[in-house]
Design a protein around this nucleic acid. Sequence first.
DNA 1: CGTCCGCAACTGGTATTACCACTTGACCAC
DNA 2: GTGGTCAAGTGGTAATACCAGTTGCGGACG
Lengths: 243, 243
Amino acid sequence: MPLQPVNRRSVPDEVFDQVLAEVVDGEIGAGESLPSERRLAEVLGVSRPAVREALQRMAQTRLVEVRHGGATTVRDFKRFAGLDLLPQLLVRRGHLDAAVARSVLEARLAVGPAVAALAAERGGPPLAAILTETVDRLAGTDDDVERQVHALEFWDLVVDAADSLVFRLMFNSMRAAYEPALEALAPAMAEEVGQSEAYRLLTAAIGAGDPDTARAAADRVLRPATESLIAALSALSAQEDDE
Amino acid sequence: MPLQPVNRRSVPDEVFDQVLAEVVDGEIGAGESLPSERRLAEVLGVSRPAVREALQRMAQTRLVEVRHGGATTVRDFKRFAGLDLLPQLLVRRGHLDAAVARSVLEARLAVGPAVAALAAERGGPPLAAILTETVDRLAGTDDDVERQVHALEFWDLVVDAADSLVFRLMFNSMRAAYEPALEALAPAMAEEVGQSEAYRLLTAAIGAGDPDTARAAADRVLRPATESLIAALSALSAQEDDE
DNA sequence: CGTCCGCAACTGGTATTACCACTTGACCAC
DNA sequence: GTGGTCAAGTGGTAATACCAGTTGCGGACG
């Protein structure tokens, strides 16, 4: 294992994670109040500004509501949290949440083809050229981690070409959830990123400016791995239910 | 105009907004450094903890990178920001950004039918019952604002039934961008929320457990207003280009 | 007896200050 | 050149005090 940057966690980070866990695990239900900032600081053995920073970040994520003079209350995160919370929900307590992973795959399968269609409408030949270069790099390596990186690059270019900020932000959010686990997911994604031919077909459709063909080609890139992974996940969660 | 709750803005909120604006408006390009916390506090006439809170929130949104001992640098928000930034980008300096609005509409049209299809697979008859109640309320009023609220409720139920956390979080993020402008958008959305018959067809398809029909019905609900609004937006931005 | 005013006693909001920890770069010894 | 050292600047954390709201209790007044 190569040397890695040391993971330095600040005090507010730690507080944030602890309070976040309490909320998403339902230890403190929606509508209930958090202890006061002073109390939290005392219990956690940190200063009040540190607690404040963490709570303000919680508020920004719409997980709690702080009211001047009143108590800080927990909100229903399933109803208010945004897509930026995905990384924290996908892997909780070091374990992958199968239901969340399934929904990531479903969303990817639904959104990817739509983005490809938009890219076909708006990309043009120069896009096809750099996409081809990326697919060449994808096809030119045997390492599944590298392949994933190139596949991400590929989709990054497609999303750029789609010229749609919302899809771009969605992509960023999902990449933020995906990248930390990229190495662990290498075997799972090998099936998909090994199909360089499918990426070439998609590139051709986008270059041809044909949205419908691009949509279908994107589906063909994403669907096989999506379906086999979802099957694997249900087997996994069924197995967990037995424990 | 009815009395409204006074808009209380805290100091860190204000700082956050100002720094955010500098970043998204490109005043401080990606890779450049922000002034030090002490300097910012001095320039803005606020305390350093206030600046810190704002900067930490910027970091959480992945808009800046703070390094202990080093400078705080701006990141390329188009590449790193998540969907939670959408509200800030949709309306900037009090004006609606036409390109962003267009992409919201495009994303809605792409995602809505996929969610409806999932809901059809997983919802069952009890879902159809409460959806029908919601459509009844939608059809029972002439007020476009109320209709929008009921339409949001409708989609909220559909998203719930789709049982997919990612779509739920996407919906929450987009609702957070949409709701503040709900009243202003009433005329624009009147065409869509007035078509209660289309909602009924969608409800029937979902209740019947037929994903493909549900997908098509959802498209029929969303497409007309989407296309006419996109047309209106391009006319609007063409007009702005003339100024 | 009920209403309402007003005063604690909470809560979060902000500022000040001091000091610790880390990074950077310049300078110097080897 | 290489490596060490040090000073200056940066963010990280804490302690403290006070301001500014909210809440609820109790007493004064009708």
